[in-house]
Structure formats: structure tokens, C-alpha cells
Amino acid sequence: MGSATETQGPIQSGSAPTCLRAQDLTMRHGASTTLCTLNLEVPAGQVLSILGPNGAGKTTTINLFMGFFRPASGRAEVCGIHVAENPIEARRLLAYIPESVSLYGNLTGLENLQYFAELGGIRGLTFEAGEELLARAGLQESAWHRDCSTYSKGMRQKVCVALALAKDARAMLLDEPTSGLDPFAAREFSGLVNELASQGVGALVATHDLLLAREISHRILILVGGEVKETLPTDGLELGELEKVYLEALAAAPDSERDQL
């Protein structure tokens, strides 16, 4: 298996400060390598999508940035903080939106927001401030004081976005964020992410949704079998062209990797 640097070279940022950086990031599960010398950079205000099929290493990359896994080699950095060495500090700068956001069902959206914000070191988030954040995240007012057990997936994600706002997160990690959302909710969510990016947040989105990747991102990284196959800027990129490159990357993967897809 070759490395990303050999095939493509690291994705370079411009002059904006780097929010997320992977340097020769490698992850192994037992004998198999699930991520091979990944190099990437996400500058402030930009969105980078990792596009790939199931088992490509997208969630592994997110988990490495979260500090949930320790890399076999290489390093993941959040705003210059070495995640493996200081995961707590790194997480405080991050907003994380998993594929399925799980909140405490017996707490209201506002209570969940206050609880998770306090865990993140934000003390004394008042009701008013919390309500304002929920409003900014697009959660309808009628839901603020309702138990989250009644929330849809999109509504739970909005609480997470409100949390990102509360934390004043410098970077975002999104793992299959629109999977299972209806087109309207998916579009609304994409808008929220772009709004955060416009405020200087650097976002890394793991997805296998080509449309989302093209709409939401400044650049796309195609990951197959733990290896970077292509990196594409989305400026002027047609969906058909993206699909063609993606399918070619999949087709070029060895049989053993395609069997996992």
C-alpha cells in the first residue's frame, strides 16, 4: 500500500491558520492498516470532505483527530495541538457531529446544550444565551424546552451546532452528517456548516455522499482502503466529473479492498 505523500502530496493551506493537520498519520487495527500515512491540512474557513466508501478510513481519521484512537505513527493536530499528547485540550477546540447525534432523551434541547457546554469548560451558560445559540443553529423555538427524546435527527444535529457555537469551536469534525436526513434538512444543515466556515471554522467532513461533498466543501479528498487516491478542488467541479474520478479511484483499488466496499 503506498502512502498519500507518494501519490498526491499533502493538501496545502493558503495563508489562513491551519485548524486541522495530519502528518503521516497511520492507523493499524491488528495486522491490517486502516489508514496509511495520511497528510492533510484544513485551514480556517475551509471545508475539506473525505469521500470514500465504507471501510475507507474516514471515521478512523475523525477518531484520530478526536483522540479516541492512538495512531500507529504520524500525528494529528488541532490548531497546533498534538491530539495524541493532549486530547482534552484538542477536543475543547473541536466541534464534533457524529452520524447519529445521541443526546439525553430525558433532557430538553436547552438542558442538553447547557450540560455538554459545561463539560466542555463553558461555565454558566444562561437560559437566554442557550436559547440564542439554539436559535442561531436553526432549532425552532417550540423545541427548545422539549425533551430530546421527541427530536428528529436533524434537530439533534442542530443542538450539536449550537454546542459548536457555544464552544466557539475552531474546527469541526463531521461524520456522515447528512446520512438519513431528508433533502430539505440536508440542505439546511449544509448551509449551517458553510455559515460556520465563513466565520473562520475549519471543517473536516467524512462522507460517501458525492453531492454533499461537492456542495459543502472547498476541496475533496478521495480515500479508498486507507489510502488517498485523489484530491480535488471543488471550484468548477461538476458532479459528473467527481463521480467519474471517484469511480475510477474505486476501480483502481486492489480486489481485496474492493471486496470490503
Binding site: M66, I88, R91, R92, S102, F116, L119, C160
Partner: peptide
């Protein structure tokens, strides 16, 4: 997952 991600 969300709890740990909060930075606690």
C-alpha cells in the same frame, strides 16, 4: 462519544 468529545 458526545460526552468525551466535549473535552471533559
Amino acid at each position: 462519544r458526545l460526552t468525551l468529545a466535549s473535552g471533559v
